[in-house]
């Protein structure tokens, strides 16, 4: 099913450069993600994984290159500004990009239900009633319907993260970005979040996932990308990268990760 979809990338990064002051964090990233594809990003701390996701989410302005999503150039360096899609189209496409963070970032003053309905109501103009119906459906999907009227502080980390996923899904995104969404969780809560992500992948969501969960990468990812110092140094099927990585860097990094996982 993914063979023909692969021809036309849904997310496409070309020569993306990003710097923070003097620090060049992304130095020419090229990456295509097909519709329905699940791509896992791995790499050492500081290699630019979060920055890459933030650029795709349009949280960061890039210095050079282009970012194309759903056929529209939504991000571009100053040199490629003319390639940018019209503003209204960019806004439309931005709403197709959902993101979930390591620290959940739920709105603490709103109930679970209000967290989920806020953006559909304000951004998509959905009626309160319909937004609530949608939110409850999504809460069912992540197994938290009974928490609809709780405040986030009353939930465990795993529950908060599942609400955060539901909140992102309420905007009906076409691509989801996950930045180490299980890293802040107690080990026993990781599984419930991964399960939701797995389900999402099975339903055909296009996903870019930064994670240290190697089992998830092995079982769910279509491709695993290894980043080092702001560039992609390896891009292969999980079966290949885990057994026979093409770079020493990746091999060393994976060995450390897998040893750690074996200890657990």
């Amino acid at each position: 099913m993914k063979e023909d979809a692969r021809k036309k990338p849904f997310v496409s990064l070309r020569g993306v450069h990003k710097r923070f002051g003097d620090l060049l964090v992304l130095r020419g990233v090229d990456l295509q993600v097909a519709q329905g594809e699940v791509v896992v990003l791995i790499g050492r701390s500081g290699s630019g994984k979060s920055t890459l996701l933030n650029c795709v989410a349009l949280l960061e302005q890039i210095e050079a290159g282009t970012i194309e999503v759903d056929g529209a150039v939504v991000g571009a360096g100053p040199a490629d500004e003319t390639a940018l899609a019209p503003k209204t189209r960019r806004r439309e496409v931005a709403a197709e990009i959902g993101m979930v963070f390591q620290s959940f970032n739920l709105f603490p003053h709103l109930t679970v239900l209000q967290n989920i309905t806020l953006a559909p109501r304000r951004v998509r103009g959905v009626s309160s009633r319909n937004a609530e119906i949608l939110a409850l459906e999504l809460l069912d999907r992540v197994g938290l319907r009974e928490k609809a009227n709780e405040y986030p502080v009353k939930l465990s980390g795993g529950q908060q993260q599942r609400v955060a996923i539901a909140r992102a899904l309420a905007m009906n995104p076409k691509v989801m970005l996950f930045d180490e969404v299980t890293s802040a969780l107690d080990p026993e809560l990781v599984g419930e979040v991964l399960k939701v992500m797995r389900q999402l992948a099975e339903e055909g969501m296009t996903m870019l996932v930064v994670t240290h969960e190697m089992r998830f990468a092995r079982e769910v990812a279509d491709r695993v990308i290894f980043m080092d110092q702001g560039v992609i140094v390896e891009d292969s099927a999980p079966s290949r990268i885990f057994t026979n990585p093409s770079t020493d860097e990746a091999a060393r990094f994976l060995r450390v990760l897998m040893d750690a996982e074996a200890v657990e």
């Binding site: 989410a57 806020l118 953006a119 304000r122």
Partner: peptide, 25 residues
């Protein structure tokens, strides 16, 4: 800062971000 990021990726505009996310807090 993370609250602004969360609001941003939900594509809330600046006014709504202030009104519904920042101001109550």
């Amino acid at each position: 800062r993370t609250q602004y990021n969360a609001a941003f990726v939900l594509r809330l505009n600046k006014v709504d971000t202030f009104r519904f996310v920042v101001f109550p807090q």
